[in-house]
Simulated assay, not measured.
Amino acid sequence: MKKTIFSFSIIVVLLSILIYSQIGKTNNAQVSIGESTKFTEKEINEAIGSVKKKFMSFQGCKLTELWYSESKSDRLIKDYLQYGKGSSNGIKEENVMVLLSNFEVNSSGGDGSFEPDSTQSDWQWILIRDSKSDHWRVDDWGY
């Protein structure tokens, strides 16, 4: 009986390690918030939390930097509203924010959609909310 419990415990530990090693890592990311006339620090931090949560699904990747730059965000919002999902979803400009990030991809290439052992730079995270009182959600990401 003791051998069975010990063997089961070893299997659980190994599976936990395997699963944990596959999720996107965000805990040591350097976060920077530039000055904003549009959003409060609380609003930006909530958006950062939404990106970190989404990033956990990026297998084999490690978030190294995440930042908000209002001038870059404004420029990217215009593209999103004119050419991206914002052109069809009816979202208002004041309910869109773009964060930028850098992240590393491990030797496995993550889920296969990234080049192994690469760094993704200036990766865009487009966040939307239905109104000022709603929570941010990641609507799109990429370049």
Rank of each mutant, 00 (worst) to 15 (best):
S107L: 11
E46M: 09
S71A: 13
S101A: 13
N95A: 03
L14R: 00
D111C: 05
Q30G: 03
Q59D: 07
H135S: 14
S133M: 10
S50A: 15
K25Y: 06
L63W: 04
C61V: 02
K2E: 15
I17K: 01
A29T: 09
F8P: 00
M56I: 06
K78Y: 09
I33V: 15
N106C: 10
I44M: 10
Y68D: 06
Q82V: 14
K72T: 11
I5H: 01
V31W: 01
R75L: 14
D140R: 08
T40R: 08
T37Q: 14
I5G: 00
W136N: 05
F58S: 09
F55Q: 05
F6D: 04
V51A: 14
S107R: 08
R75N: 10
D134Y: 07
Q22M: 12
V31D: 04
T64V: 15
S16R: 01
L18T: 05
G112N: 06
I17G: 02
P116R: 04
K92I: 04
S101W: 05
S118N: 03
K53H: 10
T37I: 15
G110E: 02
S88W: 06
K92T: 12
K62A: 13
L66Q: 10
F6M: 08
K2L: 11
S36M: 11
F103D: 05
Y143D: 09
Q30M: 14
K25C: 01
G49R: 03
S73P: 13
I91P: 08
I48P: 02
T37N: 14
A29P: 13
G49E: 02
E43L: 10
G109Q: 04
F39N: 07
T119C: 08
Y83I: 07
E35K: 14
T26V: 13
D139P: 02
S131W: 02
K54A: 12
K52C: 00
G110C: 04
F114C: 02
S113C: 03
M56C: 08
L15G: 11
S71C: 07
